[in-house]
């Protein structure tokens, strides 16, 4: 188990460093950012002076080396616009993103797992058919559009919820629903099909032959068997959720990492972009890492050797 954890931790580090490297070179190859800082009529001397000041005149491998050395120490430089330190700025936005993503995840699991289980249990019933239709539809709705529609109804028409911003629990409701919608559809569908799969297994027949009532069979036995694939899927989908968070944050002006990242991309404020990529890659890698451990915990074939 310890071997496994160490191996996965090394993988986390590699992933994050590679992500930084790729983005660094992409940015540098895409052009010289100096021009963006100066008025269009800046003289050649001014540009040169500025380049030297920012260090863009040196060979790219030296820039890269220096960047990586600083990056591992948490120094991504300063925002090219506001002159704030990049990493602390990104980190200060992290709690808001976490708040949004975690609440959406919890909401989607709370809805999807009971819905999927019930759907499998009442297979081919009217309830099941409606739930399947909704999940198919839910997977086709782009989340940003759902956000706009929610804003239209609850903010513009009914005027009972704010259309954006943060500060109170009321502000969280619409972004949370928007972000959770796709996951609800996907998790419900997956839970249903996994449960149906498990319910066909020999060991379920064995439990049935022991006189276990159906409710207990579904809720206690089959559910625990289904949890392994469900956890795997949820872990795989956290990336989608994180990606979705970026878009949702923009739609609802939610002050998280995603919105900051978007603004920095717009402004070509690359120190912040790099710090943001670093944080996102790190979070994602760590989530996958935790999911692996959780997976091992649920599955005794891995846990007990």
């Amino acid at each position: 188990m310890l071997d496994f954890i160490i191996k996965r931790l090394i993988q986390v580090v590699v992933v994050v460093l590679l992500a930084l490297t790729v983005v660094f070179f992409l940015i540098r190859l895409s052009g010289d950012p100096t021009a963006l800082f100066l008025p269009p009529d800046a003289s050649r001397e001014q540009i040169e002076e500025y380049r030297e000041m920012l260090g863009f005149d040196r060979p790219i491998y030296i820039q890269y080396g220096e960047f990586m050395v600083n990056a591992v120490q948490g120094d991504f430089g300063q925002s090219l616009r506001s002159k704030e330190d990049a990493l602390p700025l990104v980190l200060s936005r992290l709690p808001a993103t976490f708040q949004l993503a975690i609440s959406a995840l919890i909401l989607s699991l709370l809805i999807a797992i009971p819905l999927g289980v019930l759907s499998a249990y009442k297979r081919n019933s009217v309830f099941d058919r409606i739930s399947v239709a909704l999940t198919v539809l839910g997977q086709a709705v782009p989340s940003f559009w759902l956000g706009l529609i929610l804003i239209y109804f609850f903010a513009a028409q009914l005027n009972i919820l704010p259309s954006g911003g943060a500060g109170s629990i009321v502000h969280l409701i619409l972004p949370m629903i928007t972000l959770a919608a796709y996951s609800v559809a996907r998790f419900t569908r997956f839970t249903r099909s996994t449960m149906l799969d498990v319910l066909r297994k020999d060991y379920i027949r064995t439990a049935k032959a022991s006189g276990v009532p159906t409710i207990r069979l579904v809720g206690r036995y089959a559910l625990k068997n289904s949890l392994i694939p469900i956890i795997t899927l949820v872990a795989l989908d956290l990336g989608t959720l994180l990606g979705g968070a970026v878009i949702t944050e923009v739609v609802f002006a939610w002050p998280g990492v995603g919105r900051l990242l978007m603004q920095s991309l717009m402004n070509r404020d690359f120190p912040i972009v790099l710090a943001g990529v670093f944080i996102v890659a790190l979070i994602y890698a760590v989530i996958n890492f935790i999911a692996d451990i959780l997976y091992a915990y649920v599955n005794p074939q891995i846990r007990v050797k």
């Binding site: 590699v14 940015i27 990336g239 989608t240 990606g243 990242l261 991309l265 996102v280």
Partner: peptide
């Protein structure tokens, strides 16, 4: 492939698109 899969697809597309134009 592993490294790339460990980065959210939509975010990757966004960052690349923002950089290359």
């Amino acid at each position: 492939v592993d490294v790339q899969l460990s980065f959210p697809f939509i975010l990757l597309v966004l960052v690349i698109n923002a950089i290359i134009g």
